[in-house]
Design a protein around this nucleic acid. Structure first.
Length: 286
DNA sequence: TGAATTGTTCTACC
DNA sequence: TGGTAGAACAATTC
């Protein structure tokens, strides 16, 4: 389940391999042409023919290849990954796209679930229109976060997952950041205290940086290159830890469905305002 | 066999 | 009308 750190890992891995290559043809070995968003295979092949890859980078969870003219963007969704060699012939049925370069080397887009998409485009305007701030860019400041949480009346979990708000956070890192900050996933954004916002701001940046350092999280299926595994799984505190004790307070971590997503949190550290008030009242009267 | 999985997009609601 | 919530959707695995 690639989120920002996993996509960054893939980009870092691919960049040196792809930069300077010239695309000579595109194909779809398994015939799943829906992978080319709004393009037929022929249109994609024509668009990419003879184009050089000038730069490989990332915006949110999108991988972007800057070409001589235009861009090739890829969203991995759940199970998308890139391979430069095809070791197992059985994998062919999962290869939605195959690119051949002028030097005869190859790039395969393997996607078991087939949710991944490839976009051929002249500009990136469409992407900029739908994506919010980059959490690791200088523009993601504490004051920006404070102001933008204040003006919204949304539950924290779905808000952090909203790519038009902050681009790149997914289910794993959202749960981790909220746990670290002690914020209940259903807490309304405008009700966060100043210190909560400050901790949240720091946590998001810190978790993402540490996860990038660890080359992402391999939870179910993520890998980069042929078989690279992300090591951040060992640093997860709540995601996938339902039934286990909270590292902070030993209360059992629960998993509930919030905003149609499996959400892991500690019912003691991450209480809703209501419950916190009840408890503080109990403490006063005690 | 159908429940579970994800990010995005569409629709409905206030 | 704009902001928000929730359903739908893609396809596969176990």
């Amino acid at each position: 389940m690639p989120e920002l750190p996993e996509v960054e890992t893939v980009v870092n891995h691919l960049s040196s391999k792809l930069r300077g290559k010239i695309i000579s043809s595109s194909d779809s070995p398994n015939g799943y042409i829906r992978v080319f968003h709004k393009f037929s295979l022929k249109e994609c092949d024509t668009f990419l023919y003879n184009q050089a890859i000038e730069k490989v980078w990332r915006r949110g969870k999108y991988i972007i290849l800057s070409l001589t003219k235009g861009f090739l963007c890829i969203h991995l969704r759940m199970t998308g990954k890139f391979l430069t060699t095809l070791e197992n012939p059985k994998d062919l049925k999962y290869i939605s796209a195959e690119f051949t370069f002028a030097d005869q080397s190859k790039l395969y887009f393997k996607d078991v679930r087939k949710f991944g998409r490839i976009y051929c485009c002249q500009t990136l305007n469409w992407l900029e229109e739908k994506l919010g701030l980059e959490p690791l860019s200088p523009s993601f400041t504490l004051s920006w976060l404070k102001a933008n949480l204040k003006t919204k009346q949304r539950k924290m979990k779905p808000l952090l997952l909203d790519q038009s708000f902050i681009a790149g956070l997914g289910n794993i890192y959202t749960d981790e950041a909220l746990w670290r900050t002690g914020i209940h996933p259903e807490k309304i954004s405008s009700t966060l205290t100043q210190s909560m916002v400050k901790t949240l701001h720091f946590s998001i940046i810190d978790i993402l940086n540490k996860a990038i350092e660890a080359k992402g999280t391999t939870f179910l299926s993520f890998s980069y290159g042929e078989n690279g595994k992300g090591e951040f799984k060992d640093n997860l505190q709540v995601f996938g830890k339902q039934g286990l004790p909270c590292p902070k307070c030993n209360t059992v971590i629960v998993k509930e469905f919030i905003a149609q997503r499996g959400t892991h949190f500690c019912p003691s550290c991450q209480q809703s305002t209501h419950k916190l008030q009840e408890n503080s009242h109990a403490n006063i009267t005690r």
